[in-house]
């Protein structure tokens, strides 16, 4: 109860700061109330939904690809000690590359349109998921690995009954970061060389200096991201506590 009160207080403080900023620079920043009204109008307008659906579709595919690919890479590399040691610095340095620079390459491969956005989102999300999954497998308790040997489990059995359940808490942490970055990747993809999607809406509004639209889209994205993230954080805590 006290915790939710604190959250409400924090949100209230944020809104007050936002309102004060709005009063300082009214042309650059819409007020919280104005943003809410604009967001409500957009949600009720027919032109908004195709863009939201486009972003949602690209994000969903990108996230699924990032999860599948990241887990395959991470679990595959983590199973073997040498391959994990070889791969870790490579993955970490790929992770910290400014991937925007690679966007032209992706556009040249996939052409303009949804596939390029999906590929760009996947590129952002796949690496953190792989890194977390790999470290999760590497840090499994040795006694579990010995049990696998004693029981002579097959590779599939090992993966399904020991590795994935044992590594699940870490994997969920990776998914949380992968989720955020995939969304960011899809949006950046839409902000450059795109004609549809929420990123395009933002870019278009920037071009027209339509501040209320910019703020409304960001606010809606922000709320969706925070809610999804809070859910995964809750899952994360639960899994880590169960494991401990």
């Amino acid at each position: 109860m006290k915790r939710s009160l604190d959250t409400i207080l924090l949100i209230a403080a944020g809104l007050i700061i936002w309102q004060l900023l709005h009063m300082a620079v009214p042309y650059a920043l819409t007020s919280p109330a104005g943003t809410a009204v604009k967001a409500w109008n957009m949600l009720n307008s027919a032109t908004f939904w195709p863009h939201a659906a486009e972003t949602g579709k690209a994000f969903l595919y990108a996230l699924l690809l990032a999860i599948a690919g990241g887990l395959a890479i991470g679990l595959g590399l983590g199973l073997n000690r040498t391959s994990a040691e070889v791969a870790e610095p490579i993955l970490v340095s790929v992770y910290s590359l400014p991937k925007v620079t690679l966007y032209p390459l992706i556009l040249l491969i996939f052409g303009l349109g949804v596939p390029a956005k999906i590929a760009f989102g996947t590129l952002h999300g796949i690496i953190p998921i792989a890194i977390f999954a790999m470290n999760a497998v590497r840090n499994l308790a040795p006694v579990h690995l010995k049990t696998v040997k004693v029981l002579r489990l097959s590779r599939t059995q090992t993966l399904l009954t020991v590795f994935i359940p044992g590594a699940l808490p870490e994997i969920v942490s990776g998914l949380r970061i992968g989720f955020s970055l995939t969304l960011l990747g899809v949006l950046i993809g839409e902000m450059f060389a795109s004609q549809r999607g929420l990123g395009y809406l933002i870019m278009n509004a920037i071009g027209l200096h339509d501040v209320p639209t910019i703020m409304a889209v960001i606010a809606m994205l922000g709320i969706a991201a925070v809610l999804a993230s809070a859910f995964m954080l809750w899952l994360d805590h639960r899994l880590h506590h169960r494991a401990a």
């Binding site: 620079v25 650059a28 949380r176 955020s180 960011l184 991201a225 999804a228 954080l233």
Partner: peptide
């Protein structure tokens, strides 16, 4: 939870601001 979901926001949109 806000810190954890921070990186999903497209800050580039604040560029005009």
């Amino acid at each position: 939870p806000f810190l954890a979901s921070y990186y999903a926001l497209p800050f580039f949109a604040f560029y005009p601001l």
